Simulated scan of single mutants.
Amino acid sequence: MNLLLAAAFVICWSSGFIGAKLGAGSADASTILMWRFLPLTLLLAVVVFAVQRNAFRALGSAELGRQAAIGILSQSGYLLTVYYAIQLGVSSGTTALIDGTQPLVAGALAGPLLKQHISARQWLGFCLGLAGVIVVTTADASASAGVAWWAYAVPFVGMFCLIAATFIERGFETSLAPLPTLLIHCTTSAAIFSVLAISTGNAVPPAEPSFWLAIGWLVILSTFGGYGLYWIILNRSGVTKVNTLMFLMAPVTTIWGALAFGEPLGVQTIAGLTLGLLAVIIVYRYDRTQVRTEGQNRRQRTRSATP
């Protein structure tokens, strides 16, 4: 995996948690998400129909429905739970780390659903990541006495949404280019968030400059950067590698949140983040070894087949 691509993905995806925190002080989660996706969808529509006018010509109803479902899960469900958790008082770093447990579930399901082998070394890394989540969540809950215990379960719902979207995407081939695909996802999310905001009386945006700063931040860094790079890396490297990078979101977001918002960064939190980083090293080193082994095996088979 290209190191610069991976680093850009981690930074851009982490920026989404920081952007959610920026907007949480001035508006409801549904308001932020509605005004994040309405202008984004209009901008994408202009670009897509100007550059790829015939992108949807051969699009069937089944593929359209599948892409809409991916958008509902990977954007609407995932983002709403992240924003709601932060609005409830869960720190941005803890939310990022809980969402970073995706490799645990994705790894468990990759075998039966995608017929991928999951080694004992990978499971060790995944379990260390889970231990890190428990340590950090406990520390955050102790430091945030006013946060309800069930608020820490909310990010897990979003994590399951994103995993479901990932498996749907990996289970079917599509002829759509990335931009038209993103337009379908964003259109679906814009409709859902608009209905939610209007029905709850939260459609009118606040006048605070911090709100519009958060919107610009989320559109440019989080959506185009984080969401776009997620699918690019997923297509290039597979479920295990892209989800392994999710463990890096927590330390980046935690340090970022501590510097920007004064969120707690104690010894227990650092210990939990260290477990998460150790999990990344174990799983990622296994992936690199596996790739080299497979390459050597292919070369040996090629040489043996040569007359």
Rank of each mutant, 00 (worst) to 15 (best):
I184R: 06
G272D: 03
A151W: 06
L265T: 13
G295M: 11
A203E: 14
A69T: 13
Y78T: 04
L130I: 10
P180V: 07
T101G: 09
I215S: 07
V219L: 12
L130D: 02
F56T: 09
F261M: 00
A139Q: 01
Y78D: 04
L88D: 06
T137E: 04
E208W: 10
A164H: 01
L104N: 04
R299T: 11
Q52H: 12
I282T: 13
E63Y: 13
L245T: 07
T94C: 11
V10E: 00
W35A: 02
Q122L: 14
I282D: 07
E173S: 15
V51D: 06
L33H: 11
L277K: 02
G276F: 11
T188W: 05
F211A: 09
E169G: 04
F17S: 07
S15M: 06
I18V: 15
P307I: 09
P205K: 14
E63F: 12
T94Q: 02
H117Y: 03
V135N: 00
W35V: 08
V90Y: 11
A20L: 05
Q300A: 14
S144Q: 14
T137R: 03
Y83K: 02
A106G: 15
A143E: 12
I184G: 05
Y286T: 03
R301K: 07
T253P: 00
R170K: 15
V252S: 03
L259F: 11
A85N: 10
T254R: 02
M246G: 12
A207T: 14
F261I: 01
I163T: 11
A153D: 09
G146V: 05
P307K: 00
G146A: 14
F160W: 08
G146N: 15
G295Q: 13
I281H: 14
Y152S: 10
P155T: 03
I192W: 08
S30H: 05
V105N: 00
G216F: 10
L275H: 10
Q75S: 11
N297Q: 15
L213T: 15
F172P: 00
L221A: 15
S199D: 07
L182P: 00
L59A: 09
G262N: 09
L218S: 05
L234W: 09
A8K: 01
I282Q: 08
A131K: 03
L22H: 05
F17H: 09
I32A: 12
A139G: 04
A177I: 06
E263M: 10
A260F: 11
T240N: 13
T137C: 01
W150D: 06
I281R: 12
F172V: 07
L97A: 04
C12D: 02
R303C: 06
L176F: 11
S15L: 10
G238V: 05
R36M: 07
A27T: 10
V51E: 08
F156K: 00
W149Y: 10
P112F: 04
G25M: 03
P180F: 05
P251Y: 01
A207M: 12
A250S: 15
V195S: 01
P206R: 07
W217D: 02
W150Q: 06
W123P: 04
L245P: 07
A165I: 10
